[in-house]
């Protein structure tokens, strides 16, 4: 994998859960939460878990103000772009509005080859249930972030109801967008409870839900 992964997509596509899973599974150094859209279910709720895994969490909030919905972005978010020994995942807020925060780092990105800018897609979200809508979203994300999308993550799921056929359905639709835009499916995330022996597009990863509470 590239040294830096930036996760973008529609809200509710599963970016934050994937960021946490990726940071732990790939033993990354930093998780940078740049979500200025979502007030709840943020990576800050798993700070202890991340720290226990040796991952530093850079939050998009003011210290001791976890309940704040001020759109604050840590200036430390720029560091992985210039310090090439930091392996990091960025978790952006949903839609093109959430992706806009990348603009401010544009001048620091000297090594675009270090970066994967990936769009997380769940086709069971209304706003990304067709290749046409996904392609439109990619263009919007690129326009506001000023970054080129390098690939897709298939995270098609209906939570506890997810089965193999839903992941396949997701792959079919995302593949259409992937073909049209010539960007690969880089990962498929599969919820831990899904029974499958199939190999899906890209690297196949297990998704454990850390942000949703046990009773949700």
């Amino acid at each position: 994998m590239k040294r830096i992964t930036i996760l973008t997509g529609h809200y509710g596509s599963g970016k934050s859960e994937i960021a946490v899973n990726m940071a732990i599974q790939e033993k990354l150094d930093w998780l940078i939460d740049l979500d200025i859209i979502n007030p709840y279910f943020r990576s800050r709720s798993v700070r202890a878990l991340l720290e226990g895994n040796g991952i530093e969490l850079i939050e998009s909030t003011i210290e001791n103000a976890a309940g704040s919905d001020l759109p604050f972005i840590s200036p430390k978010g720029s560091r992985p772009f210039v310090k090439r020994d930091i392996h990091a995942v960025y978790d952006l807020g949903g839609t093109q509005h959430g992706a806009k925060v990348m603009m401010q780092f544009r001048d620091f990105i000297k090594h675009p080859e270090d970066i994967d800018f990936l769009v997380v897609v769940n086709i069971f979200r209304q706003e990304t249930d067709s290749a046409e809508k996904i392609i439109k979203m990619v263009h919007e994300l690129e326009a506001t972030s000023q970054l080129r999308v390098t690939g897709f993550i298939n995270n098609s799921n209906l939570m506890e109801y997810t089965d193999e056929s839903m992941i396949e359905a997701g792959q079919r639709i995302i593949f259409e967008a992937s073909e049209a835009l010539k960007r690969p499916i880089v990962y498929t995330y599969i919820e831990e409870h899904v029974k499958t022996t199939k190999v899906f597009a890209g690297d196949n990863k297990v998704l454990i839900r850390h942000l949703a509470k046990q009773w949700l």
């Binding site: 809200y11 509710g12 069971f124 979200r125 939570m159």
Partner: peptide, 14 residues
């Protein structure tokens, strides 16, 4: 069929 929605969106669509 079922879709995955956020509560606020689901109320708006409903």
């Amino acid at each position: 069929a079922k879709v995955l929605m956020k509560g606020n969106e689901a109320m708006a669509l409903a």
